[in-house]
Design a protein around this nucleic acid. Structure first.
Lengths: 197, 197, 197, 197
DNA sequence: TATGAATGAGGATTCATTCAT
DNA sequence: GATGAATGAATCCTCATTCAT
């Protein structure tokens, strides 16, 4: 193993380990010792690469959001039609719960912190704004192209994201509540009916 | 100060104090010492009325859900028309965020625990199932009375609750994201359009 | 239940309960709350009849020693022959382990305190001196009557008591170590052979 | 101060400190804080080397018994004659009270725990069995060589150990009770007379 | 870079004791 | 006489962080 240029390897190692710890044991039971053990490193080295525990936590959530952002970019942006983009985005939201279930386990642990930790709050706000902004772009594009009616778009981004997130949370907490794929179709129907009326 | 019959008073005192502590500082920073200080009692007495910290936490979430359940009962049940009930329920969900903002601050802190604490998970699942079940009742009633079309109701309860919860969370995290009252109308429109199509 | 003249009843109740608690859970785990529960009274009343926990403990050991003293008096003193007295005393010591096994469980818990608690030390010393003194009396009587040889009696009281106590402790700790009745005979043989040689 | 290879040093430090604390203040008043202070370390480090307080206590008694075992091995085993071995063992038992008075202060504190703490009970039982087993070996050897008569050996190991322990305890509790050296001779006489009759 | 020993403050919990009723 | 609510100090243990190696 190289002894120099470990920076990124170690940071990723710690971030991944922390994510697993939070999802498995909850933020409440997260300790630096656990993180170190899960990452297979010493506690000391963690403080070489991160300022403190809080610093790790910020990097973890940023990394999660960054990954989510990337997924949208990779799958949605290549598409041309606003309608397709919107539907693909919706599918994406649904896929997160199914394929990357850690994601919800993770942000649920951070959402609780938003009211007491300003820094977390800012990051989460930015993430939500980002999500709404994507949707807004598709909608505006669609309105321009007369695919969507202008009247409906105002609050729609929030509706789309809120519904996706709500379903994701609900399913994460109780996977027996409904069939995720089938619900994904209903999700799209709901939005489609509203946006095309 | 009376020395007898304090049981309920003290328990409520501690539950209320714990709720405030969680909302203000987050579950991660919750300590029994804080709870005692917030409640204006000694730490010792807390263990006279509760088995341990976990026990308090369970009572806190149960109390919050019970209160929410009561609000639905009080406002929705008196109504006669399924459509009115559904819309009233939706209004209720929205009102929670506005009038009882602690509620979201609280459950966001518990949602993070669902993946690691089975007991919390069960309670939250039960709560969500309850909520969906209410909506389902209105819908079935509406289908019987031909107010709603049968085809749409299958996944609708989850949609209604998920959307409401998603909006509540989003607004709690970022109250500047949208106007809650206006969004409430859109929320109703979305559901109405879907259910009546 | 009478409300006056409860003094002795309550004190005995508490002393008996404390004894059971110590034997069952060890002095290390003894709490006033446990005592109260075992005695079926409130914690408050305990402080009405005893100065504090230490005070209870002193009364418990005194009561145990008093009882042991009484047993000797009742069974040994009526006898006439020094040799019979000595053997009866030895039988008594053995019987304690068998019939009143709490006794060893109790004093073992107090013996540990002798090095750090002067008051306990004094009580235990007095008890041992008492025991040796009984034996000494039989021996002196026996020497006077020419039953025993003078040379052997000097250290014998301690030997008799030490051997009895050692066997009692050993058997209490490990009842499978030997058959108590058979060992009682050997115990008597050992002393008899020494004293009559 | 070195930072590596401290494991054994620290463990011994803590075990020795705990022993002193127990002898001085009794097990009832033993706290991890005291141990740490007596050992001259922080409380935190104690939990780095021991699982918990119970774990320390187990190591303390094991160390004490191990030391006692070693003393027998070193002084008794080199001897050839069964009779010499037996007498040397007896002298050893007596010497413990005189030269290593902490030993009795220590085990007296553990004996009280045997009835409530299974783990301690097992350790103490094993220790006693060991002691009896040594004596038994000398006796069997002696019977083979016709030094001892076969009839007397059955219960003798327990008698030897019990008497030694009883005397040790008695003297530890009340050193004025008798002269230890002189009593040691009587102790040997008692056993000798019994075994050689 | 990397380790893990070391610290001491802080966490949950228990406990002896008091006191209003 | 009797209760059990109330207190706060003390207990066991964990944890974030530092630092010698």
């Amino acid at each position: 193993m190289p002894k120099v240029g470990m920076e990124e390897i170690r940071r990723d190692q710690v971030i991944a380990a922390t994510t697993r710890c939070i999802v498995k044991n909850g933020m409440v039971n997260l300790s630096v010792k656990n993180i170190a053990a899960e990452a297979g490193v010493s506690t000391g080295i963690i403080y070489h690469y991160f300022k403190n525990k809080e610093d790790i936590l910020m990097h973890v959530i940023k990394a999660a959001f960054q990954q989510s952002h990337q997924a949208v970019m990779d799958t949605v942006e290549p598409l041309n039609e606003p309608h397709d983009k919107l539907m693909k985005h919706i599918e994406n939201i649904n896929d997160v719960a199914k394929n990357n279930s850690d994601f919800y386990g993770l942000i649920l642990n951070y959402l609780g912190q938003t009211s007491s930790n300003e820094q977390v709050n800012v990051i989460v706000q930015k993430f939500f704004r980002n999500l709404r902004s994507y949707v807004n772009n598709y909608l505006e594009e669609g309105v321009n192209r007369k695919t969507f009616t202008a009247g409906s778009v105002k609050n729609l981004p929030a509706i789309v994201i809120a519904l996706g997130m709500g379903l994701g949370i609900m399913w994460t907490v109780d996977p027996e509540a409904f069939d995720l794929d089938e619900m994904g179709e209903t999700y799209k129907d709901v939005i489609r009916k509203f946006v095309e009326s």
